[in-house]
Design a protein around this nucleic acid. Structure first.
Lengths: 188, 188
DNA sequence: AAGTTTGCCTAACGAATGTTAGTTATGACA
DNA sequence: TGTCATAACTAACATTCGTTAGGCAAACTT
């Protein structure tokens, strides 16, 4: 990917984040890039390529993250802490792409959308494995594994709705809070 | 609202849910309603009215729900349980509207979007009050109130991403699981 | 029975959409 | 100096967008 193409991708992600993919026109992107709409086609194949790269580049980062965590020999609580930390850092380090990733993957074409969903399921499986490990190790109470993994991921993913890079909480602090909340709950 | 108008609104919500608001055309809605696009304008003022009603009708239900919970004299744990139960039932009973409510409120016009955000903040405040009560009553550990309320709502709201009316978990069961998870956490 | 309302129709509007074709200026390399 | 690649341009395309105007038939009201 050339430097200019990456630049355009980044600009597009910023617009997709604030306006949403379908509501962002190629002309919007061109304008933000200081260029005519047609000129973009020297760099990209079409609007959808920008969405595609956004979704799949981030998906790859998530895959790598969870694979790394599940490869090491720690107990489930430590693994969960690491997985949460990794997830939060990926989200906050790529907040614009992350919003698009969460919200606009539906607008991929049928084929790519299927690929995407498959990756997503695989990732969720990684979290299920951790929860199951925790139960087997006697560290976690015997919850519904699928439901628990989903709920943990809910809390993590909602970050993109409120995260502010200039806010008072750093990514690491957010991750720590989330782990504590997930592990311990509200009860005193 | 006439019966036909409500019918059109419901049809629109179904389309908004699957395609998203900006990607759903007036002609799509008309086709699903078995009518020409122009005919819709005998019933509605414009496309945006459909989004507006969807967002604010549901917002009202949420307001009523949290107000009711905070009006009664139970301890914070019971209140939280009720608030979660109410929230989950509103979401699952209006799943199509709920998806639109969560995802597409951004496409309201500036004025209405501000109104919407205000309602949303007010609702979140309701949850913060419950968490604060719990801490004051010595039932909850001394967490960051704002963060905790946000995290609870994250788990609740993500439901719309996976809830299946024909799935094995009923709304009440989902609510119970979520309360247990929130209150107790994973730790054995 | 006469008048009015309702719910739809066809036709068309101007604007915006994603994309293509063909051209031109610039700068690197032989 | 001549050749080629790059990155931009203008112009235009077919299509779709939300919406309006005006008409017509059936159904309800008086």
């Amino acid at each position: 990917m050339t430097e200019r193409k990456l630049e355009i991708l980044t600009i597009a992600q910023g617009l997709f984040m604030t306006k949403g993919y379908p509501a962002t026109s190629v002309r919007d992107i061109a304008k933000a890039a200081g260029v005519e709409a047609a000129s973009l086609y020297s760099h990209i194949n079409g609007k959808e390529e920008l969405l595609d790269r956004t979704c799949f580049d981030l998906a790859e980062k998530f895959q790598d993250g969870i694979a790394e965590v599940n490869d090491i020999y720690f107990d489930a609580a430590q693994k969960l802490k690491m997985a949460i930390d990794t997830h939060v850092h990926i989200l906050t380090n790529n907040i614009e792409a992350a919003v698009v990733f969460q919200r606009d993957w539906r607008h991929l074409n049928d084929h790519r959308r299927n690929d995407f969903i498959q990756l997503r399921n695989k990732y969720e499986d990684g979290f299920r494995v951790i929860v199951q490990n925790g139960i087997d190790e006697g560290l976690f109470s015997e919850v519904d594994v699928k439901f628990a993994a989903l709920t943990i991921l809910s809390s993590l993913n909602w970050i993109v709705e409120w995260y502010d890079p200039k806010g008072k909480l750093s990514a690491s602090q957010i991750a720590e809070n989330l782990f504590n909340f997930t592990f311990t709950g509200l009860r005193k």
